[in-house]
Simulated assay, not measured.
Amino acid sequence: MRDLTYYVAVSIDGYIAGPGGEFDRFLVEGDHAAPIWAKYGGTAPTALADAAGLSVEGSPFDTVLMGWNTYAVGLPGMPSPYRHLRQIVFTRGHQAPAGADGVEFIDRDPVDVVRELKAEEGKGVWLCGGGALAAVLRDEIDRLALKRNPVLFGAGIPLFESGDYDPAAFRPTAVTPFESGVTLAEYTRA
């Protein structure tokens, strides 16, 4: 059975993007970049990885899940951002833009879709955002991999959208601090 991993950059105060949806304060360069890429390779858009000379081979994931807002960050320039992965975008009302070859746009219950994906053969499934989708899938998330960045947003898109749900327990499997100030905190469901 495949695992669902929520792998995402997050501020110290728990936001995956600032009040205007910005995420440009997250550090992409520093001593954390190479070790994190070695562990979670293939988690950059294909064109950006190619431009940086990073191989997308050997990724722990073969499928990426996104809500519409996360997907739309790359529009119009990257309508198929993760061409090296199976791409699934959850949306209720948006149509596929031109050039979105290889992207599946789904208007179904994300929990049902994830359960089907977990039953398939393959590598891990990566939830790359956003906070609303993460909240819906909270009980299906097997692992958390949080690139905690040394910034405060104060407001914005939370790691998990608030809601009325039971607390879930996770246990840390690794916490790796870097000189850049980024800490990779990894957890598995308890």
Score class of each variant (00 low, 15 high):
Leu75Gly: 11
Gly67Pro: 08
Glu57Asn: 04
Ile106Pro: 03
Asp50Pro: 00
Arg86Asp: 10
Asp50Val: 08
Ala52Ser: 02
Gly102Glu: 02
Asn69Pro: 01
Gly67Asp: 13
Thr46Gln: 04
Pro45Met: 09
Pro76Asn: 15
Gly74Glu: 15
Ile88Cys: 08
Asp107Gln: 09
Arg108Trp: 09
Gly93Ser: 15
Ala72Ile: 15
Gly99Asn: 14
Ala52Arg: 08
Leu75Glu: 14
Ala100Trp: 02
Asn69Ser: 14
Ala52Asp: 06
His94Ser: 10
Leu54Pro: 08
Ala100Leu: 09
Ala47Asn: 01
Phe90Lys: 09
Pro60Arg: 06
Gly99Ile: 15
Arg86Ala: 14
Ala96Phe: 07
Leu48His: 01
Ser59Arg: 03
Pro79Tyr: 15
Ala100Lys: 03
Arg83Phe: 03
Ala52Asn: 03
Asp101Cys: 05
Ala72Gly: 09
Tyr82Cys: 15
Ser59Ala: 03
Pro79Leu: 14
Ala49Ser: 10
Gly53Ala: 04
Leu48Gly: 04
Leu54Gly: 03
Ala96Tyr: 12
Gln95Lys: 05
Asp62His: 01
Glu104Arg: 05
Met78Ile: 05
Pro97His: 15
Asn69Gly: 09
Pro45Gly: 02
Asp107Tyr: 10
Ala49Gln: 04
Phe90Ile: 06
Met78Cys: 02
Arg86Ile: 09
Val56Asp: 00
Glu104Gln: 12
Ser59Ile: 06
Asp62Tyr: 04
Gly74Gln: 15
Phe61Asp: 00
Asn69Tyr: 04
Arg92Leu: 05
Leu85Val: 07
Leu54His: 02
Asp109Leu: 14
Leu75Asn: 12
Gln95Gly: 11
Ala98Ile: 12
Gly58Val: 06
Thr91Tyr: 05
Val64Ala: 10
Gly93His: 11
Pro79Ala: 13
Tyr71Ile: 03
Asp107Ala: 15
Gly93Leu: 13
Met66Thr: 01
Val56Met: 00
Gly53Val: 02
Val103Ser: 08
Asp101Val: 08
Leu85His: 10
Asp50Ser: 06
Gly77Ala: 12
Asp109Cys: 11
Glu104Met: 08
Asp109Met: 06
Gly77Glu: 13
Tyr71His: 05
Pro81Glu: 11
Val56Gln: 04
Thr70Leu: 15
Gly53Ser: 02
Gly77Gln: 12
Arg92Met: 10
Pro76Tyr: 12
Asp107Ser: 11
Pro45Gln: 08
Glu104Ser: 12
His84Pro: 07
Asn69Leu: 15
Ala52Tyr: 02
